[in-house]
Structure formats: structure tokens, C-alpha cells
Design a protein around this nucleic acid. Structure first.
Lengths: 233, 233
DNA sequence: AAAATTGAACACAAGTTGTGTGTGAAATTC
DNA sequence: GAATTTCACACACAACTTGTGTTCAATTTT
């Protein structure tokens, strides 16, 4: 895509296009070259956090509210990384809970929550995503036992189970699931038609899935048949 | 202090005073009652983070830059909590280092640093301060060995050593010092005339102190006599 | 019951952010 | 090496956000 082409398509000036491309290049979304830029996504990779957060915010908010309603006051919760789980964090701000978020985005959303006991795992924040990963994270999780784990994912279906794009992320999710008595997965409709590289857990490891009305019947039916409580909002 | 009194002193309207008082009350700086508010500081306690960050930012920046210059590329550094250390974090953003910040403020300042390897300890972020404390933090530190620790403090002098207001904080500082080969303290001039509740370490535990020109001669001299390299900027 | 205080709604000013234009410098192409 | 394109800086301008003041009804206090 050339700068002139983008300017023509958007109606913005070339200067604006250049400025925006520079920001996106810094985010790692695209590669800049003289006269234009080429996308670095689209190759089965995950779009960057900033872009994903703009996708269907209303659906995520509804799913998050429903997941939050499944938590009882006083519970201890481990909260996964990702945009949907960040929304869950936001809807937990006024609750009385013990929460361990697995990303700095969620942690920042929860600092200042008056009644919430916030607990951070150690680890290395992945650039952009700010998901905490690595041996420190896994060690922190291994040392604790939570009432509930709220897990996000990149792909989810009965056949492949819960999958993630990033191997380090998948290991953390697995550790979170292992250290929780109850596992709730949050997933919008698009997740059911996707399977990512890293396998996290079979569908049978989940106690409940919160999704939306648009989720394909055959997939949610198969999950229900596997003993997972499916809630559509 | 009554609302009308404050409005008279500042020249602002009562509505503005009320709004500002509400913010400060949320921060825990003061207690609101009908007709006015009373300060919760001034009792030898530490003013809240937001206020401290506005105090002498230029001096902190100079001290931070000097401390940063003492670090060599490639080093592993544990970086304490507090406003001065937050400034150190900012001046580390373009360096090639491994950094473990002990507060979420510093962590947020360093996400996005391209060449920096960021490592987070676990722990509970103290409200406002966002300093990570507790057994998880101490365990994370105990498992690691750093080249250098950059430590802030509430009070520092040759007689009482390095002191902090918060007991949990002091324990974390002690753990950070114990897991580093070299210890650099950063302290503006005011710290030398103050001794806080919790004792962290004797002055002899420090390898270097970075402070400013206004620091009292007798104190810096006593530190130098104890074998501490003192740098004034 | 009367007085004082408060919070909400609206209007307004100031500061911030994003955008466009013009210019000269730098890089690429022929 | 000259011509052309692309880029980056500077400034001007508009849209938006933020903070402030006013008014007014509701609440609390005396």
C-alpha cells in the first residue's frame, strides 16, 4: 500500500497517513518502506492488542458482565490476559474479591479498586499485550490455589479444546487452570471458528463458557455435551 | 478547613473547592465532612504519591540521570519504588538492560522500552504507591541475583542508615539489597534530615549514594567516611 | 422551620490533540 | 549528477477534552 493510495482511499492528507503509519509501525502492525507500508498481520497471526480492543467492544462488555456475575463476593480469582479479560477486570472494579490478573493491562484497570485485594504474579510482560509470562509467572501460580479461573482464548471448540497463539501464554493459561477449582472461559462468537497454534486444555477442563448469541449452535452444543455449562448473552 | 475558607484563600469558587476535595478524599489525603475537610497528613506520615511527584521534579530528574549513568549496558537492575526511582525508570527507557521494577508505576513507565528486558516480581501493589510488597515479592527477589539495586528511601543518614515509612516496603527493600551485588541509593537533600519508622539497612550496606548539592555536608561526609561513594549533582 | 451545604446540569474558557499546508532536506531513480 | 519523489519539520487551524463557574433543587443541620 502506497502512502498516496491510502490518502486517496481515506480522504486524509499524505502527512496524516505518514504520521499514522509511523504509529502503527511502532506498534509492530506494519512495516514501513519508502513510499508506503506493508501489513505484517494477516498471516494467521494475532492482531495487536490496540486493534483487538476496538473490535466489538459491546459484545465483550456483555460477556464480561455475565462472567463477573458468576463470581461470588469474597472469592479468589485468577484473571487471564487478553481484551475480553480486560473487560472482565473493568466490571470487577467495584466488587469485593481477591484477584490475580495475568496482564498489566488488567492490573492497571484494577489499581484503585477500593474493596479489591489485588495480587500480582511475577513474570515478563509481553510487549503490547502486557501478558505476564515465563517461569516467574508459572511459579507464582503454582504456589497458589484459586476458587475460579477466568480464561480468555484465541480459539475454542469441542474438538481442539482451548487454544492460544503464543506458546508462553499457553503455558501460563495451563498453570492458571491447574491452580483453580473452577474454570470459566470467555469467548466471543469468532473464537469458535478458529484454532490457534498452542493447545492449552481440552474442552472437558472447562466448567463454564460465557459467549454471545451469535456462537454456532453445533459448537456450543458439542461443548454442552462434554459437560460444559454454556451461557449466551 | 472550611470550604468557604479555602475558596477565599485560593480565589476559586466553592464548587471547584468541593470537586478538588472530593478527589483528595478519594486519594486518602484528607477526610471530608460537611462544610469542609481535615488533613490526614502532617502526622509524620508520608504524603501520597501524587503529591510527592510534584515536589522538586527537576532535582529528582538530575539525580535519576546521574544514577542511570552509573549503570552499564547489559546489567541486571532491581529498581525500587517511589517517585525518585520512577524518575530513574524514565531515564532508563532507552537503555539496554534487564530491569525488575518494584512498583507498577515504574513498570508502566518501562513497558514499550524497545531494548529493555522487563521482569516483574509478584506481590500486592500498595494503593496509590503501587509498590509491590508481601511474601510473593520477597520470594521473587530471593530467587534472583542482580548486578545492581537502585534504592529509594524516606530517610537516610549515617547514624540511622536507610529508613522507610512502610514496614512491608522496608522488607522488600531489604530483600532487594540482599539480592544485589552493588547497591546505589538515590536521595534528595530532604532525606538526610529525616528518619522514618522502619529501618532498612545500615549506611555501610550501600556502595553509592546519588544526591544533590543541597545535601548537608556533615551527613554526606559521614557517609563517605563509612565507605560510601557520594555523588552530588 | 430556617439556614447552610451539597450535588447535578449547563455554559464557557483554556488547553490538548489531531489534521492540513508549505517549505526545505534527504533519498531514490533515471 | 540532475530530476523526481518522499519525507520531516514548522506553523496554523479546527475539534475535542478538561477544568471552572453559575444556577438551582435536594439534602442536611441547627
Amino acid at each position: 500500500m502506497s502512502v498516496a493510495e491510502l490518502a486517496g482511499l481515506t480522504g486524509a492528507s499524505e502527512m496524516t497517513i505518514r504520521r499514522d503509519l509511523e504509529v502503527l509501525a511502532d506498534q509492530g502492525v506494519l512495516e514501513r518502506y519508502r513510499g508506503g507500508a506493508s501489513s505484517l498481520l494477516l498471516r494467521g497471526e494475532e492482531p495487536p492488542f490496540g486493534l483487538r480492543e476496538l473490535e466489538r467492544p459491546d459484545a465483550k462488555r456483555r460477556i464480561a458482565a455475565e462472567a463477573a456475575s458468576l463470581l461470588a463476593d469474597g472469592e479468589s480469582v485468577v484473571l487471564d490476559s487478553g481484551t475480553t479479560c480486560l473487560e472482565v477486570a473493568r466490571s470487577l472494579a467495584d466488587r469485593r474479591l481477591t484477584v490475580m490478573p495475568l496482564s498489566l493491562h488488567a492490573a492497571n484497570a484494577l489499581t484503585g479498586a477500593p474493596q479489591l485485594k489485588l495480587l500480582l504474579p511475577g513474570g515478563e510482560p509481553r510487549p503490547g499485550e502486557l501478558a505476564l509470562t515465563g517461569p516467574l509467572t508459572e511459579a507464582s501460580l503454582a504456589a497458589l490455589r484459586f476458587d475460579t479461573a477466568v480464561i480468555g482464548c484465541c480459539g475454542l471448540n469441542a474438538a481442539d479444546g482451548l487454544t492460544a497463539y503464543d506458546l508462553a501464554d499457553a503455558a501460563v493459561k495451563r498453570a492458571a487452570i491447574a491452580s483453580a477449582r473452577r474454570v470459566i472461559a470467555v469467548a466471543d462468537a469468532a473464537k469458535f471458528s478458529r484454532t490457534a497454534l498452542a493447545s492449552v486444555a481440552p474442552a472437558s477442563a472447562l466448567d463454564a463458557v460465557v459467549t454471545e448469541e451469535g456462537a454456532p449452535e453445533e459448537e456450543t452444543g458439542a461443548l454442552a455435551a462434554a459437560g460444559v455449562a454454556v451461557r449466551k448473552v
